[in-house]
């Protein structure tokens, strides 16, 4: 994925607690920002990490990118963005990466946003308004002053339903999933546990998986790591992967350096084909249904269920 640099033009705090900061990013002189699909995210070098942030715009020949960063207080990239970045700074970014895209022939679009999951949904609503596509939005928030809600409300008008609590969200979504016109699709962005529930509820409501689209913000809690071994097809070489080392790092240690960017299972750069063995997929790229049969894996986060994997390297 192509890396490039942008200038932080402005920083806007949202909400009374300042947990969310919006960054407006401008191109460098003489450059243009790449256009993109709505729902796409941008990878940002944020101090100790490379994080993915959804772009708030619909991607039509943008002059500026806008991202909204929620401070997670885990000592990672979001804290760095809040504490260290000021207007005028140059950031290194990559992408945009469009993995949460519209379905242009959907007869109706149902958008569901929980908390900071509002960011890609805002982009989708903006695109739907621009291209005159029918849609409705359910937005759930717990704080009294949710970031970007006024912008969403201005776009969606009476197509927006707001709920405050987890149960109210699930009721609203379950109800909405049972009354969408034939040919509708649904997009949900929020915590992983909610998205798992959403996919299950969609299927209970008779939706085929192709109609349900999710964008996760954080991978679910992982099971404890076990050591395993990989063998490389080309040489037969076997490499041990200890419990506390990622497959990507173990390969590095053995002199096999794969491309990488985000190192957290989002960007797909480190993709490698598996020829034998059963991977333990922990990425955010493969759909739930794909994991059982996928022959590709992402070694930055994924590991093995079987004792050994044979990689196409």
């Amino acid at each position: 994925m192509r890396e490039f640099r942008v200038r932080v033009e402005a920083i806007v705090p949202h909400g009374s607690d300042g947990r969310v900061r919006e960054f407006a990013l401008a191109p460098l002189p003489g450059e243009r920002l790449p256009a993109h699909e709505p729902g796409a995210h941008l990878f940002v070098h944020a101090g100790p990490a490379i994080n993915a942030y959804s772009l708030l715009g619909d991607g039509i020949l943008p002059d500026r990118y806008r991202i909204a960063v929620q401070r997670m207080d885990r000592g990672g990239g979001s804290n760095w963005m809040h504490a260290r970045v000021v207007a005028g700074d140059i950031l290194t970014v990559a992408g945009p990466n469009g993995t949460f895209s519209p379905v242009p022939d959907a007869r109706h679009a149902l958008f569901i946003a929980a908390g900071i999951g509002i960011t890609p949904i805002l982009a989708h609503a903006r695109a739907a308004v621009r291209w005159n596509r029918p849609f409705s939005v359910i937005h759930a928030h717990r704080t009294p002053d949710p970031p970007l809600l006024d912008e969403l409300a201005a776009l969606a008008g009476d197509r927006l339903v707001r709920v405050r609590h987890r149960n109210a969200l699930r009721e609203a979504v379950a109800s909405a999933l049972r009354c969408q016109p034939v040919g509708s699709h649904a997009w949900a962005c929020g915590p992983a546990a909610f998205l798992d529930w959403f996919l299950d509820e969609g299927q209970r409501a008779g939706w085929v998986p192709e109609r349900l689209h999710v964008e996760a913000f954080a991978a679910p809690v992982q099971t404890a790591n076990e050591p395993f071994t990989v063998s490389l097809r080309s040489s037969g070489r076997r490499i041990a992967v200890p419990a506390d080392v990622s497959l990507l790092d173990a390969l590095d240690g053995a002199g096999v350096r794969l491309p990488r960017l985000c190192t957290r299972g989002v960007c797909g750069e480190c993709a490698v084909r598996v020829r034998a063995g059963t991977p333990d997929h922990r990425d955010l790229i493969l759909g739930r249904d794909q994991r059982a049969t996928a022959s590709v894996m992402y070694p930055c986060v994924s590991r093995a269920r079987s004792a050994e994997l044979e990689l196409d390297l």
Partner: peptide
């Protein structure tokens, strides 16, 4: 017929 139904119909 489609207008009488909702997603879940096959």
């Amino acid at each position: 017929e489609a207008a009488r139904n909702v997603v879940g119909w096959r």
